[in-house]
Design a protein around this nucleic acid. Structure first.
Lengths: 229, 229
DNA sequence: AGAGTTTCATGACTTGAGGTCAGGTCATGG
DNA sequence: CCATGACCTGACCTCAAGTCATGAAACTCT
């Protein structure tokens, strides 16, 4: 990366260009192409030059718009993540069956969503694990500010319905939910990140459904309200 | 990175050199220097040339030993992770007070361990979040094969003592424990990865102890055996 | 001990990707 | 019709990963 280099941890600026009037469409096209390239090649293997080539524009143009490869990726990441559904986007009839049923609904669907549109998923995976800590920091700031999966309102909703414990900090529950759901989904979906859950003993697919049930049961005990007796 | 380049996801080999007799000491020295450099600069900002310079050897020598920057980092990562204590390394008197007390013991200690020896921690952080997916895959394979924190025997021990539910798959509990402990420790320790747990509402330090207690209580409900009534 | 063989070290060199910039183009408005 | 400035361009620069021919050092075998 460019610039100031070594002050212990180099802090490159992902400079935000002021959005000029006529270039919005072009920016969007670049970001789309970038998403495809990053998804297919990975962050490092993707070449800015290739992206420009594929679009029939000059490489310099991309840098003019996004400042750096990292800046371009950050935009692609944001777009990818914003394309995902939020928890409370589940159909009403599912939502009415309760907090944990919503979770089950999305877990059962992740695979389907992935095959339908794998590019955003792959890009978000890169953002979570495959770039560098400086970018990751920026990404976490973004996730915190935007809550793109709507975890906070989802948890708030669960609290209001009395389905979640009221003796835990809301942030704690949000964090736990974010962490475990993310990792569980990654384990369900990816080969790179599978931390053993589906491979430790070689049983790959057949137990998936059972795992989801177990996982949800655990989560329910962890943060669910005590059932009345 | 070198080589074959683009088949959807480039699969570079982190070739393992057969360990030659007389070079072991040198390899170790290189790995140590690499750990320092990676920890201080990050994966990308660290220069193989600098590492060589710091050691007073030629850059080519490093490539002869480790094949690539990625290969070198992988060795550094393994060394870093192997330097961490295993769950069951807790003092006997702590171990005797039970499974969840061991967890509390280590959580209360992480900060201290970090300040005492931050380099391995930083390198492991890079391996978990800051390189690329190809390397991450290799890393996960390693973690799975070596179980460097000793989570598997720790959980087995907890099961034998009847402190953990016996109706859950052992692998499931191991995975949950690995995931949540890792993220929780990262949240406790790092600024880059802070997923909001300690910042969402601005309270930074004072609640840390309380968080640990809450976290453990949650974990206990999730995977702990039902208390007898 | 000395020739032959293997192992290891070296640093100049190649490659190739990110990033820059002086200049050109084109749309707009006066 | 010219002035302005946003936008585009691609040759060029920088710099770090990775290569390799060369040679020294260590080891082996007769």
């Amino acid at each position: 990366m460019a610039g100031i280099s070594s002050s212990i941890v180099a802090p490159p600026r992902y400079r935000r260009m002021p959005s000029r009037p006529r270039s919005e469409g072009k920016r969007a096209k670049i970001v789309d192409a970038a998403m495809r390239h990053f998804a297919e090649q990975g962050y490092h293997a993707a070449r800015v030059g290739d992206i420009a080539l594929a679009l029939g524009i000059a490489k310099g143009s991309i840098f003019q718009h996004f400042g750096s490869k990292g800046g371009l990726f950050f935009e692609a990441y944001k777009k990818a993540v914003r394309a995902f559904p939020r928890y409370l986007d589940a159909p009403t009839e599912v939502r009415e069956t309760g907090f944990f049923e919503v979770l089950r609904y999305w877990l059962a669907r992740t695979e389907h969503l992935l095959h339908e549109d794998w590019i955003p998923y792959r890009v978000s995976l890169l953002g979570n694990y495959g770039t560098d800590l400086t970018l990751k920091r920026e990404i976490n700031r973004f996730l915190l500010a935007e809550d793109p999966y709507g975890t906070v309102p989802f948890v708030r909703c669960g609290l209001q319905r009395g389905e979640l414990r009221d003796d835990l900090d809301q942030e704690m529950m949000v964090s736990i939910l974010d962490w475990t759901m993310e990792r569980f989904q990654d384990a369900l979906l990816t080969e790179e990140l599978d931390p053993g859950l589906f491979r430790r003993h070689g049983n790959v697919m057949e137990k998936k459904e059972a795992r989801i049930i177990q996982f949800l049961a655990m989560l329910k005990r962890a943060i669910g309200a005590e059932p009345r007796r």
